Amino acid sequence: MMGNPVVHFEIGSAVAERSRSFYSSLFGWSVQTDSHGYGVVATGSDVGIGGGIMQTPPGVPPWVTVYVGVDDVEKSLARAEELGGHRIMGPTPVGEVGEMAMFSDPDGNPIGLFREA
């Protein structure tokens, strides 16, 4: 991989269906919920990236984040920790698609990492 592009965005919502409806109405996005309850967003544009809208787990506050494409998720997590970030989760397989993880930067912002299979 050349560089590390932003490859996906995600909105974690306290009421996922409300957020899916809100963003669909506001921006004209198409949101298709998969078998795991994850709302896959198609923006309808060939510019920019797609994303997802999901229900936050119990006790987890809502978030908005981006996922950065990396060659090695674990190595990137370890480097984030060396630089003052904190591991939130992962690495975790994403079916046949790849592998993901999340960390928080020194200000507490959640950032995702993604390696395509």
Rank of each mutant, 00 (worst) to 15 (best):
G12T: 05
S76V: 02
V73L: 04
A14T: 09
T65G: 08
S24L: 02
A42Y: 08
A42R: 13
F27C: 02
P57T: 11
I88Q: 09
G12D: 05
E10Q: 11
A101K: 07
V73I: 01
S19V: 10
R20G: 01
G51C: 01
S24H: 07
P93H: 13
P91L: 02
M1K: 08
E74K: 10
S35H: 13
F27I: 00
M2W: 09
N4M: 03
M89E: 14
E74F: 10
P61K: 05
V15G: 11
M54F: 12
V66K: 11
S104M: 14
I88P: 05
A117S: 15
W29E: 02
P61F: 00
G59C: 08
A78N: 12
E116V: 01
P5S: 08
G85H: 06
I111A: 03
V64Q: 09
A117N: 13
H36R: 11
W63P: 04
T33D: 04
G44L: 01
A78I: 09
S104A: 14
R115E: 00
E81H: 13
Q55N: 03
A80N: 02
E96M: 15
P110E: 07
V68H: 00
F114A: 00
G37A: 01
L77M: 03
R115T: 00
D46L: 13
V97Q: 09
P106C: 14
G59V: 10
G90W: 09
I11A: 05
T43K: 02
E116K: 05
G95W: 09
D107F: 15
G48L: 03
E17P: 07
R115P: 00
P57F: 13
G112Y: 06
V47F: 13
V64T: 09
S35N: 10
V94A: 15
G59R: 12
A80R: 03
G69M: 01
G51L: 05
G59W: 06
G50P: 01
V68M: 05
N4P: 01
V66L: 06
E74V: 12
G95Y: 13
F9W: 07
V68W: 03
E96T: 14
G112A: 06
G108H: 11
S76H: 05
F9S: 02
V60E: 10
Y23F: 08
A14M: 03
G44R: 04
S21V: 10
G28F: 00
F114G: 00
G112V: 06
I53V: 07
